[in-house]
């Protein structure tokens, strides 16, 4: 196996991983802070792409579309959190309510999208500046894939800075550990939870917008993306932001090299990795066993 092939396959895996990370990080952030397994997270991926699609019909500018897609997904996320999810926090069997309610939102958002934009596939063109490919010797890498990798890394850097270096970030981390204690200390916990939900769903929207020029925008895309994201979150650890990054990198690269060396088994390999993690470290690779969480 020549070195160029290995590099090409590694970069492919990295590009797959970054889109997975952007969706999974939002999913895991919501679980970690708000303690909700947001099954409808993929629907915000879908909404981001459709908002961008709609805006591009008017302005034909990818960058403005990206901004609107991300902000739009975040706003819808916050509205859903305030109007619906907040009402079931703390109820008995909250988990079952969450699952049913967030699953209902998948169906509702899919149908709303179909009602407004129709059932046919939509596409978003790549911005002109990112149309070409970079020829790295004998390896070709599309410029747009490099852009996705760079955006993913910027999100990682920003998240690291926010969560570890700012007071607001520390509050977010604290609320994931004990929201009751944080509330007693005078912090507006509901506000933090709404904001986190908004940021997380905006990240889902960002992933959708970034993926749209490579994929199809169609009702139903949200449910498809959520399965892979769940695998990533399970591997990295539920509620662990850095775990989502590690999980996405593992899945991206396992899939990529699996396709190269054993294509018949490639998809199964990702599930095998998940099962191994569940047996060896069921809480996920980067999560500590949560004791006394409230």
């Amino acid at each position: 196996m020549d070195f160029n092939t290995l590099i090409a396959q590694f970069v492919s895996g990295l590009s797959v991983a970054m889109l997975l990370f952007l969706v999974a990080s939002g999913l895991t952030l919501i679980f970690g802070v708000v303690n909700v397994l947001n099954f409808a997270h993929g629907s915000f991926y879908l909404l981001g792409t459709y908002f961008t699609y709609q805006l591009m019909q008017v302005f034909n500018n990818f960058w403005v579309g990206l901004l609107v897609g991300v902000i739009g997904a975040g706003i819808v996320g916050m509205v859903i959190e305030v109007l619906f999810l907040r009402r079931i926090y703390g109820r008995d069997q909250e988990g079952a309510f969450q699952l049913l309610m967030t699953y209902a939102f998948i169906l509702i958002i899919d149908d709303v999208v179909k009602f407004i934009w129709g059932p046919e596939y939509k596409t978003i063109p790549k911005p002109d500046a990112l149309m070409g490919s970079l020829n790295l010797g004998t390896t070709i890498v599309p410029t747009y894939n490099i852009f996705i990798i760079v955006v993913g890394m910027l999100v990682v850097l920003f998240a690291w800075y926010f969560l570890t270096k700012t007071d607001k970030g520390k509050m977010v981390r604290a609320s994931s550990l004990d929201r009751n204690m944080l509330g007693l200390l005078g912090t507006n916990v509901p506000m933090i939870m709404t904001l986190v939900f908004g940021v997380a769903t905006a990240m889902g929207g960002l992933a959708g917008v970034l993926a749209a020029p490579l994929r199809t925008v169609t009702p139903g895309a949200g449910i498809e993306i959520i399965i892979d994201s769940m695998i990533v979150v399970v591997i990295g650890g539920f509620g662990n932001f850095w775990g989502a990054l590690l999980g996405a990198l593992i899945i991206g690269e396992v899939l990529s090299f699996g396709i190269l060396w054993m294509p018949e088994m490639a998809t199964v390999l990702t599930f095998i990795v998940m099962i191994i993690v569940l047996i060896v470290k069921p809480e996920g690779l980067l999560s500590k066993k949560m004791v006394g969480r409230k």
Partner: peptide, 10 residues
């Protein structure tokens, strides 16, 4: 499958 990148390079 949403992402065929690794299939394409293979």
């Amino acid at each position: 499958e949403p992402d065929y990148t690794s299939y394409i390079t293979a």
